[in-house]
Design a protein around this nucleic acid. Sequence first.
DNA 1: GAAAGTAGTTTCCTGTTGGAAACTATCAAA
DNA 2: TTTGATAGTTTCCAACAGGAAACTACTTTC
Lengths: 122, 122
Amino acid sequence: MKKNAIINSTPVCQVRMQAISDAMSLLSGKWKFHILGTLIEGNTLGFMDLLREVNGIGTKMLSKELQDLEMNNLVSRTVKNTKPITVEYSITEYGKSLSPLIDELAKWGGAYRRSVYKKGKN
Amino acid sequence: MKKNAIINSTPVCQVRMQAISDAMSLLSGKWKFHILGTLIEGNTLGFMDLLREVNGIGTKMLSKELQDLEMNNLVSRTVKNTKPITVEYSITEYGKSLSPLIDELAKWGGAYRRSVYKKGKN
DNA sequence: GAAAGTAGTTTCCTGTTGGAAACTATCAAA
DNA sequence: TTTGATAGTTTCCAACAGGAAACTACTTTC
């Protein structure tokens, strides 16, 4: 008798797994959380501001990640009619809804780091 | 006058960003949350059980991801003295501490999916 | 003796991620 | 007119992630 999946075959689990995959695909990559976190703190920032704030990022990645985030409605981009033109990036209401998740991630990561430190592994 | 980072230069932000990076590096990849979620639900499972439960994963990735998770103390591996030998994988206490984070991720992902559905994008 | 179940490892290949550097284009100030 | 600030894009390249298939190795069942 061939065995089949039991746990993850339930509809509840399927939906949950799908939700996690969705979230992961929107938030994957090296820089998304850094950018989102910075915009949550800073409210409104220009491209060069972000380039300075997000430590280590380059123009290509910043540009690409901002496009991704804008496409998913987590960040808004507004071109100001100034000279020279400036662009304002800010977090959307929807983006703000990520705060609890970011907090949880920071909390867990911090606790993990402290536990490893205690054990003398680092 | 050359501008410098303001927001993310504060020690609080530095620590927070580091915590997020730590968590991300432990939990990155296509399969970690699926495996962890399955083990949280299923308590104790063998290699072949996991292969059946985690939809789409292959032996190579399962083996590699389990090694990663074991190394980071999120999953424990026990070889049983049976014939043929069986191996029991289970979630550690430390791994269980990820539950709130996984819940938050599933919650946000689910809400996102519903919001996109409402707007008719999908 | 062959098939099937246990638990993986190894090899080969492809697609994606991300970085460095150069480049475009506009405008203001010195 | 040269410098520097704005906001990016493009190209080229190296490294990593992940999948398919074959293989190892042991044991039990048919």
